[in-house]
Structures are given as structure tokens and as C-alpha cells.
Write a protein that binds this DNA or RNA. Structure first.
Lengths: 218, 218
DNA sequence: CAGTCAACTTGGTCGAACCAAAAATCTGTA
DNA sequence: TACAGATTTTTGGTTCGACCAAGTTGACTG
């Protein structure tokens, strides 16, 4: 049963390597194949194993990303509840407010440089809404990375994948891209000037406006 | 397979009610019991179903708390990795910094009253380290509730359950309880005075000191 | 009417079997 | 010998039937 889980978490099964065949495992644990399969599917649901049909299960050392993946199903359900989207979006705003404040206070030259590059890519994509969407995500992604804590990039991945369905419905236009770009620039400038309050204010305004764009399509 | 999941998320299976027997489900979906069982265990692993041995599975409408429960296994693994605990604790500090800032800015009279009550309970428990531990958690819990966003209390539950193993090892004493209490009071006072910067500073110092208490026992 | 015990229900496990696709092996040709 | 194709073996996915033990139900008894 969960002895299998132990074998994985203990690490005596290497990462990215296929699991032993089910028939070997049932012999090793002295149990039936039914039990082995249930254990495997349980581990797969928790993200410790990657399961492709007809292929040997692959051991995945869990990282903060698998955490996000594992929660996907439930989050998607919660988003369908009253104010589910709002609660999540509000959480995102909360996080990013803290992130930009910290960025303004602590960002290194490299971080600033990354941010500038993301901003440039953002600017270059204004005419192409498809591409702009991605550079938009990337710009915010840099903010999450500046924290230096791997938890935050994972959260960013979660936010984007969970909220993008709503986001994707948004009507796009070059003017809106420009609006977003200038908002990003304002955030960048505030960080450059080491002004956390201004950075936070700029971010709040940015996400408020963006939320308005999304809401408009209900 | 996932048609079962649909039946639950669609809500035509009531919350807190037992699932139909496996043998009925296999008839309903025209599949074997093995498949039904795998589907059920999959849902259980995601927290949509509560599974007690020998009892009928109980449908659980997922909330933000089940999200935390579902991630427990993976988080516990991540905590065993290098700087896993540090990453999580740092995330907690980050969140609470934002929370106390917002509390200082937006807390209502009721919130302040709740906080005051939590502080009082904290004070009353100084002589009893066991009880103090709980009131300590509760005090921070109020901070999470003030946000008004159900995501945050769930995060609080996660932080406490994930970090408490480390926390529990901490050597306790009345002096330390007093130190913690005064730190809480400082945070409370700053919120009362609507001073976000001071509240944040007090919280940072508080959690820095507390971390030191924990680290001391490595 | 309450308590008890037997019969039924139901989740947990097992074993055997079959299928299809992947992996490994073999074979024949160049 | 080397390589491509055919063949065999392995292996995951699924089904069926059976058994056990614990929970549930209900009838029977005092």
C-alpha cells in the first residue's frame, strides 16, 4: 500500500526513472496486482508519479510545480462557486502587491535587468495581441521570480493557468495592450526608483483596470 | 471513469451523503468494479470524497480547506528538501506582512475587537505553554480572517499544520511566551493606530525572533 | 418495547484471464 | 557484419468471479 510511497519519497527510486513493472511490485510487496495498481494511481493523483497510458509509470520528484498541478482540479471547482474567481484574483493581487513592494526594496541589478527585458518584449508585442498576452504573463512572472523563493513562481504558474480561462475571453486591442504596457512600465519605473508605495499603487491600479477588462465580458 | 467526477462536481450528488455502492456504480456506468474503485480512490486523493475503511465513501463539496489537505502529502515531502522549511516559512512571513498592513489600513471595529479578544486569550495563557501555543495560532488566525477572503484562513490552516512539527520541537518557557505576547501586542497596537509600516515591522521582528527559537533546536 | 442475533450489504483483496500496445528479440537480407 | 523488418515477450488496462470481514438491517425473542 503506502510502502510504495515510502520507496519513492525515501528516494531509493530515482527521479525520471520508470517504476518497476506492476507484476514485480506485487511480488515484492506480497500483494495482489489490484492493490499495486491502486497504490500507483493514488501516487499518480498526488503527482508523485507520471502516468501515460500503456507506458511505465515515471517517478517524479515533486516540486512546487507539482503542488500546483495537484490542486488544479479542486481549484477549478472552487472557481465555479460564487465569488470563487474573485477570491482567487484578489489573492493574486495581494501577492503581487507584496512582490512589487519587495522588488522595489530588494531587487538586484540582475532582477532589474530581467524586468527591463520583459518590459521590452512586452513593448515589442503590442501590435500582436496573441504574443502580447504571453509577454504580459512573462512580465508578471519576473516579479514572482525576484522573490528568490521557489514557492512564488509556482504560485504564478497556478494563477495564470487557473485564471487564464477568464482572461482569455477578454476582448483585446492594440489600445488595451498599450494601456497594459504603460502600466507595466509604471511598475518598473517605481521599482527602479526604489519606491515601494508607488510600485504597489501602480500594481493595484494595473490589476484593477485589467479586472475591469475581464469583467466587461462577464 | 471521470464521469463519476462529473456527477459530483455537477452537484447532483449531495454533500455529506454517502456514495452509491460500488456495485451500483459499475452497473450505472457499464464498467467493472475495478474501474469504479480506481475512480473513487482518485476522487478521494483529490479530496472530493472522504474514504473510511469499510464505510461508504462520503461526498465532500470541496472548499479551500480541502485544497490544503490535498496538498499535505506533497508539501510534507517538499519540507524535507533543502531549504524547504525555510521557503515555506518565508512565504508565511510574506503573507502575514501583507495581512497586517491591510489590517492596519482596513480592519473594521469588529476585526479589531476579535484581535483584542485573541490578544487577551494570549495573555491569559502565558503561564500555560500548551494553551499558549494554541492562542498564539489563533491570534495569527484572526489576521488571516481579517482579509475577508476565504483563501487566507485556508492558507493559515496549511501553514500551521505544515510548520507545526518544527514549531512543536521548540523549547518553551514563560519568558518566551511573554516575548511572543508582547510582540503580538505590538502588532495589535500598530493596527489600532492604523500604521501599516509599524505593523509590518513588528510582524517581521516577531517572526524573526520566533524563527530563531525554532532554529535554536535545529 | 427493547435488546440480541442472524442475514444481508458492502468495501477490501485476491487470482486468473484477455487485449493491445510497447519493448525486446530474432531473423533475413544487403 | 550491420541494419531493417518481422516476431515474440513484456507490460499496462480492463474485466470477471470469488471470498472475507466489518458494517447495516431487520426480524425474532424475552
Amino acid at each position: 500500500m503506502s510502502a510504495l510511497e515510502a520507496r519513492i519519497t525515501r528516494g531509493d527510486l530515482e527521479n525520471d526513472k520508470p517504476l518497476p513493472p506492476e507484476r514485480d511490485l506485487m511480488e515484492e510487496f506480497g500483494t495482489s496486482r489490484t492493490v499495486v495498481r491502486e497504490a500507483i494511481s493514488a501516487l499518480a493523483n498526488r503527482g508523485l508519479i507520471e502516468l501515460r497510458p500503456r507506458f511505465r509509470p515515471i517517478v517524479r520528484k515533486p516540486d512546487y510545480g507539482t503542488l500546483i498541478n495537484a490542486t488544479g482540479t479542486i481549484v477549478r471547482y472552487l472557481l465555479n462557486e460564487p465569488s470563487g474567481v474573485q477570491n482567487l484574483y484578489q489573492s493574486r493581487v495581494f501577492i503581487e502587491r507584496g512582490l512589487v513592494r519587495d522588488a522595489a526594496l530588494n531587487a538586484t541589478k540582475e532582477h532589474i535587468s530581467d524586468l527591463k527585458a520583459a518590459l521590452l518584449a512586452n513593448s515589442n508585442a503590442i501590435m500582436n495581441s496573441e504574443e502580447f498576452f504571453q509577454t504580459d504573463i512573462d512580465f508578471h512572472g519576473v516579479l514572482y521570480r525576484i522573490s528568490g523563493n521557489p514557492v512564488f513562481p509556482a504560485m504564478h504558474k497556478g494563477f495564470t493557468s487557473w485564471l487564464s480561462p477568464n482572461w482569455a475571453r477578454m476582448r483585446r486591442s492594440i489600445e488595451r495592450n498599450e494601456t497594459v504596457y504603460f502600466a507595466h512600465k509604471e511598475i518598473y519605473d517605481a521599482i527602479l526608483e526604489r519606491d515601494p508605495a508607488r510600485a504597489e499603487a501602480a500594481l493595484i491600479e494595473h490589476l484593477r483596470v485589467a479586472w475591469g477588462f475581464v469583467e466587461e465580458t462577464f
